[in-house]
Amino acid sequence: MKAWQLQDASGLDGLRKVEIDRPTPGRGEVLVRINAVSLNYRDLITVRGGYGSRQKFPLIPVSDGAGVIAGVGPGVRGWKEGDRVIGSFFENWHGGEASAEKMAAALGGSVDGVLCEYRVFPAHAVVASPAHLSDAEAACLPCAALTAWSAVVKCGQVKPGDTVLTQGTGGVSLFALQFAKLAGARVIATSSSDAKIERLKTLGADETINYRETPEWGKLARVLTGGRGVDIVVEVGGVGTLNESIRSLRIGGMIGFIGVLAGEARQEPRLPLMVMQQQRLQGVTVGSIDDLKSMCGAIMQNQLKPMLDRTFSFDEAPEAFRHMSSGAHFGKVAIAIG
């Protein structure tokens, strides 16, 4: 079968298309023909060798894929050939609280990912694709969507009347906007592009802020909430945007800390303010298989659709990474394999 492999930590120059043996499912496993994958910022970090000694080579990158079961190993119940499925980001995290053991097998990082024609999964680690989604759309769910779900629904417990602040127009942020609206919340969305801001409004953003024009956007977010502050910030910028997130947050509010997109902090973080206002900084790393099932159920019930920016062919995988790295995308970048 064909696969893309990282041969070393030299970035995209180390990404090679190779021919390797097609795997065979063993006891308790299923073979999935991968029809589409989607890219996350974490995949860019992986390609750049950002996981250091924990990253082994050669490695098939990318965590999020969708396809069809093409083979069933002995002892598997509940799945048959032809079933449409997605794979869980963490194969060993069935449910409950996270632990080192549960998070040890992370697709496209500590174990091979899905940028290939076929992959074997433990039968317990695949979830039925929502029937109304294409494979490219379903491939957007395991990491980006579930991370947003964990931040907004599981950890944030957003309810009607709450205010959620999202940052930018990447996959996690757009899913967070969609889930917050499903929960009946008000959404303040930020972007550096007026054109993207108009698209955020069409997705349901109640208020928008151009953070390039308004560097102190946290202060403006407080104004937009009548001085109270927002209930939850879905923080994908990292330390580079953390201060404004703290400034925007209400007393007792939560920052769902997810990404590192904004680079280094320009000033010391406002940690004393967090203490005085009893704010919570909650790290969010995807979620469990049980969480993925719950989220897919909600997506099915509400017929929610991911926002796909562009779909590349399998041979164009390096171009897909470059497109995502440019920051020009609005939503998810996918690669069709089937």
Rank of each mutant, 00 (worst) to 15 (best):
residue 144 A to M: 10
residue 123 A to E: 12
residue 126 V to G: 05
residue 52 G to M: 07
residue 73 G to W: 06
residue 66 A to V: 02
residue 95 G to D: 15
residue 92 N to P: 00
residue 99 S to R: 01
residue 114 V to N: 09
residue 90 F to S: 10
residue 65 G to Y: 03
residue 60 I to L: 09
residue 58 P to F: 10
residue 134 S to Y: 05
residue 64 D to S: 07
residue 84 R to T: 03
residue 52 G to C: 06
residue 102 K to W: 02
residue 73 G to Y: 08
residue 90 F to P: 04
residue 74 P to N: 08
residue 118 Y to K: 03
residue 135 D to A: 11
residue 99 S to F: 00
residue 76 V to C: 08
residue 72 V to R: 09
residue 115 L to F: 01
residue 103 M to R: 05
residue 127 V to P: 04
residue 77 R to K: 14
residue 112 D to A: 11
residue 56 K to E: 13
residue 87 G to W: 02
residue 114 V to M: 10
residue 90 F to C: 05
residue 67 G to I: 09
residue 100 A to L: 14
residue 53 S to G: 07
residue 63 S to F: 02
residue 71 G to F: 04
residue 53 S to K: 11
residue 63 S to D: 05
residue 110 S to F: 04
residue 123 A to T: 09
residue 63 S to N: 10
residue 66 A to K: 07
residue 86 I to A: 00
residue 95 G to M: 00
residue 145 A to M: 08
residue 89 F to E: 11
residue 138 A to S: 15
residue 75 G to Y: 06
residue 72 V to H: 12
residue 59 L to P: 10
residue 144 A to D: 13
residue 108 G to T: 06
residue 132 H to T: 11
residue 71 G to M: 03
residue 136 A to I: 08
residue 137 E to P: 06
residue 79 W to P: 03
residue 117 E to A: 13
residue 109 G to T: 13
residue 121 F to N: 04
residue 112 D to R: 03
residue 143 C to H: 00
residue 95 G to K: 06
residue 91 E to T: 15
residue 86 I to F: 00
residue 104 A to V: 05
residue 79 W to N: 05
residue 98 A to R: 05
residue 73 G to K: 09
residue 71 G to D: 15
residue 115 L to M: 13
residue 53 S to F: 05
residue 139 A to W: 02
residue 106 A to D: 01
residue 102 K to Q: 11
residue 59 L to R: 13
residue 104 A to L: 12
residue 70 A to Y: 04
residue 55 Q to N: 05
residue 130 P to D: 10
residue 64 D to G: 06
residue 86 I to Y: 00
residue 100 A to S: 14
residue 127 V to Y: 02
residue 137 E to K: 12
residue 118 Y to L: 08
residue 107 L to A: 14
residue 103 M to I: 03
residue 75 G to Q: 03
residue 128 A to V: 04
residue 80 K to E: 15
residue 118 Y to N: 08
residue 72 V to L: 10
residue 81 E to R: 13
residue 143 C to S: 13
residue 126 V to K: 02
residue 109 G to Q: 14
residue 124 H to K: 14
residue 104 A to G: 02
